[in-house]
Design a protein around this nucleic acid. Structure first.
Lengths: 337, 337
DNA sequence: TTGAAAGCGCTAACAC
DNA sequence: GTGTTAGCGCTTTCAA
């Protein structure tokens, strides 16, 4: 591959000038620039981003750490994050930790501050204080999709008001007249989704409804688990008229279970989730849910990370706001009969 | 961040020795190594992968170009590819082209051969000959999930026998006694999935069944499109007892449409897809499909790419074999009534 | 076994 | 405007 000096030689200038043509075009005479450009084209020259990163002391790559991109929520986030990064001139490296803290740690020590200029961490089994150590010596780290508004991490983060999502779901079901409501609480790699459950329960209590623990299942955050838990719930708690799931995946699993067991949704049972993943509108009946604005969250996360890269002196901890969750009414919820 | 020479200074050796401790441990006296290791730990030294890449003239990053990771098939591929890359000591950069050839081109010219040592291309709007040009000057490029066994590209590729997948689907439906079969043919970013359709039709013809064009829909490769097309098909072609979709997404959309219209699957209509994405076993009724071995394909693709990186002289074009597709019987297909 | 020196391809002062 | 020079952090001969 042609290098800067190859181009310089052909254009009969020095490497510095070629560099300037590419980086500070106004600093070089048009004719010279033209000659250089011709040489660049002729040789098919493309700058070596590695060398540039080394010389500039910063790279143009960001890393995104998540447990597994196979979880259907993440691709949407990744797509949005990658677009945001691209718009800002960065590449995105995707790091699946496979729920293995060792892998996460390995990634972090290898790339933070060298290959990647900053790291966006979604959910992780790595302890926050470990992340802090890395942030202290290496590149900035931003925690996104932070789920625990009560306890803020010692790192910059993008917190999502999941409690409010729970609140909206609860209000919706209450308004529809539901009183006997089962709960599927997801236990993802970010831990139990308890903010969502708490928001939901608070509204219920305010309405004079005490939670019925027999109708609650804490389960892994997957369609399969939602399906199994719902089958079980239907067998034991036949009085339920609605189901609240802390996550669309669980809700979709529940939808399948209800169909399998011959229950009509929403006539017999209403179902609502949280997130509004793509699939939520693609299943039938389509899933009512509380949408978090994935795109805005991803964009805000990348923005924050880049801000931290540009100005490392920004005071941390630092929390960035994103649009609040929004109820999305679809076919899976209806008035209690 | 601490550098090699920081470590060297502290350990009272030269940078070369530190480098050797890390890369050629056997070349350095144990006591020295120990001293160096202590210094490394003390300073929290981590090698700068950028500098290393520059010095070695090669990086440890691979790029994966695809149209959009939001397409539910890709995350599974990406996960497998990233694991394979990681096992081989490489990082994976994910590049969404958003079905925009310009973006793909920009990625290619920027990273191929500099940031990324090799590029894996899944489906692309970039013309093959453009890819060849890049491959000629920059890093090796491997085409994966190649769908057209008849016309092999001028690039190394991992071809999947999708025609055979169509054959298996056809045989399955025939064995179940179906004769009136609708077809949903996906038109993805890799172009019309015609190998799959051709394989299917060939078997049908051999069985004396001429294709009924009125029962065929060529549509974008999404759940939504599958849903819409199926709704339409049901309205016009009520005699159909089975549906073949060239892709699980379409089949899943069809499943939803059938449920919406009150048709029982598989009692009234059987449905079969191709790929076996995760979702295929998670929907109810679960989807019968022809599985391509995504993990093996991803692994083979990464292997081939790395082989090409290590030994650029390998004769191209080059096609790598992967396990043939396999029929997966689930709940969505049953004998014609 | 260790060190000295050159260089990977590029950028960034600073001088001309 | 353009060239000279030094250096980013590392690897890699080659000498010692």
């Amino acid at each position: 591959m042609a290098t800067l000096s190859d181009v310089a030689r052909l254009a009969e200038v020095t490497a510095a000038t070629v560099s300037n043509v590419l980086r500070n075009p106004d600093k070089v005479r048009p004719e010279t620039a033209k000659r250089v450009m011709r040489a660049i084209r002729e040789l098919g020259y493309r700058p070596n981003l590695n060398a540039r990163a080394l010389a500039e002391g910063r790279s143009t790559t960001l890393a995104l750490m998540l447990s597994s991109i196979a979880n259907p929520f993440y691709p949407e986030f990744v797509l949005a994050a990658e677009r945001a990064a691209r718009r800002a001139g960065y590449f995105l490296m995707v790091c699946n930790t496979d729920d293995d803290a060792e892998i996460g740690r390995a990634y972090l020590t290898q790339i933070a501050g060298t290959l990647a200029e900053g790291v966006l961490v979604l959910n992780t089994d790595i302890a926050i204080n470990e992340l802090c150590e890395t942030a202290a010596v290496g590149a900035p780290i931003v925690l996104s999709l932070w789920e625990h508004p009560g306890r803020l991490p010692a790192l910059p983060c993008v917190a999502v008001d999941f409690a409010q999502a729970g609140v909206l779901a609860a209000r919706h079901l209450l308004e529809l007249g539901h009183r006997d409501i089962g709960m599927l609480i997801g236990d993802g790699c970010g831990g139990l989704q308890d903010a969502r459950a708490t928001g939901f329960r608070d509204v219920m209590r305010d309405a004079g409804l005490e939670p019925d623990n027999a109708a609650v299942r804490e389960i892994p955050d997957t369609i399969d688990a939602g399906y199994a838990a719902c089958i079980d719930l239907l067998a034991r708690e036949s009085h339920l008229t609605a189901l609240f799931a802390t996550n669309d995946l669980l809700a979709i699993g529940a939808l399948q279970a209800l169909a399998t067991r011959g229950h009509k949704v929403p006539d017999d049972v209403s179902v609502i989730g949280i997130t509004d993943i793509q699939l939520a509108h693609q299943v039938r009946p389509s899933l009512s849910t509380v949408a978090i604005n994935t795109e805005a969250i991803a964009q805000a996360s990348i923005d924050l990370l880049i801000r931290l890269i540009r100005d490392p002196d920004v005071q941390t901890p630092l929390v960035v706001d994103v649009p609040p969750p929004v109820l999305v009414r679809r076919q899976s919820t209806a008035a209690r009969k």
